[in-house]
Nucleic acid binder design. Sequence first.
RNA 1: GGUCCCGUAGUGCAGUCUGGAGUGCACGCCGCCCUGUCAAGGCGGAGGUCGCGAGUUCAAAUCUCGUCGGGACCGCCA
Length: 577
Amino acid sequence: MMRTHLCGRLSAAEAGQEVTLTGWVNRRREHGDHLTFIDLRDFSGVTQCVINNDIDVRSEYVLAVSGTVTMRTEDTVNPDLATGQIELKDCTVEVLSKAEPPPFPLDDRADGVDELIRLRYRYLDLRRQRMQKNMRVRSAVNAAIRNAMERQDFVEVETPMLMPSTPEGAREFLVPSRQRPGAFYALPQSPQLYKQLLMVGGLDRYYQIARCLRDEDLRADRQYEFMQLDMEMSFAEVDDVLSAAEVGVMDAAEAATGVRPDPVPRITWQEAMERFGTDKPDLRFEVELVELTDVFASTGFKAFSSASSIKGINVVGGSADYGRNKLDGLTDVAKSFGAKGMVWLRVKTEDGAPTLESPVAKFLSEEEKTALISRLSGNEGDLLLIIADEWMTTCGVLGELRNRVARPPVSQGPYKYLWVTDFPLFVGVDAVTGRPKPGHHAFCHPHPADVDKLETDPMAVRAWAYDLVLNGWELGSGSIRIHDPALQRRVFAVLGIDEDEANRRFGFFLEPFRYGAPPHGGFAYGIDRLTAILAGEENIREVIAFPKPQSGLDPMTDSPTEVDAKQLAELGLRTTI
RNA sequence: GGUCCCGUAGUGCAGUCUGGAGUGCACGCCGCCCUGUCAAGGCGGAGGUCGCGAGUUCAAAUCUCGUCGGGACCGCCA
């Protein structure tokens, strides 16, 4: 046994005991040849060791220190240190490893260090308290989720990493086949297809902490590879899936933060869009979109009279904060999200009555101005932002503006979970085929109340599809699946996929449904995203041991790398670079 | 593919707008001093391709163009 105790867990209770600690030199304070203090650090914390002889130990040397746990004198107690009541005296020191000085400080100051440097030396970055905490939060989240799923009779099943390419959706990573040169496996974007086959296979309830891979551009909340809690359950309705998933998320949240969140509220997609202008609303702040279309039903203002949907938000007290420069900036944002423009109005008081100051004020009637102020509850100093366009654009742009003017960092403030249900079955139209595009995926069950509109008004059909949102981040999504081949054929028909094409593209997936598929549905949520928010981080890289920067190129291992010509030849590959 | 921000010593920065010798700060590092510190303290020292390449200029960290790298975002992510 190399150590008898942990650095961070010594206390007055061990006073008088001979102990051996192991760890890294966190800091050394030298007072001459006869007195040196060493703060020895392991994952649990630090203990001060008092050295009374001349030794050469530097930062990050790895030591085994044996000594006597001794109560500190009253004037030398350090109240800022968990082990500040005691210290190790009469120490003998064994140097287990020497260390070069680290390229950046391994304390909080490294929070400001260029992330590329942290990633190049990630194994040093991981020694820091912040990263130690994040890795442990992640582990606790995983354990809590696994436990919650087991408790609910879900069965953990591993699905293949090497699977057929299915060109729908995200760009895939491909793996060349040696046995069949010129052919490729794909790495899973998600275990979607397999988990439904597990339902056909009678597993009844499946879960997996699954690695998913998508070759799309990286972001603060996106990596090439990420982890999902993936689940699927048979003989389940929407409510069953949401409830079962929620248990895992709540358990994870409680494990990470010590506080169990309240039951998660549910709103429909329609309501989310109307009130917040997004399908992933951040409920931590009050601002909501206000309907104004009727106010301007007979307006003389051209920009409004030509629009089918007019909505606004009130940036309370925002007049002073938003000068012309910032308003121009918001207008640019609005345009970049598809609006033709943005109308802003400052609420002023004139002769004791509220009035509006704006470049467009002169185009509005007194009745319209009064109604506008009243609808948006405008008070002196408020800033009103109005968008007029078709409904989707109006909502989407205002949703973006709402976030721009009021949204705190994702990691800040209370945790606001939200289920968004009844997503549309189809979103937008394929530019090539002119057919509706699936909102979630092609196997998503239409809302039974809307099934008869599949052929007549497909864009109005709601789906049994739902998202889980936390502080404005999409944590995950899922749906009830189609288990009836006849209904599946109808949905395919709307998508413009005939029987031949369906068999060609999804054959191995459709055949099983001929043999008795139970009604089933599922869900998957991102563990990196959940952990990041629960750990107070704004970036999932902070809760991933070895993440990649935005370029996707690993500064530590230098991957991706070129490979031997021999390896390529074996795979029947030749590069053209 | 696009927009915006950033790049100066091991690390974090100031200097860039308004061109004038690598002018500098803090931490770290090295050496010496120091018996109660805890981000110890004191003295001294080393450490620089101002990301890279062109251009303008008598003169470029500073201005221009290009390029590379990093970050945030749009597109993309069924």
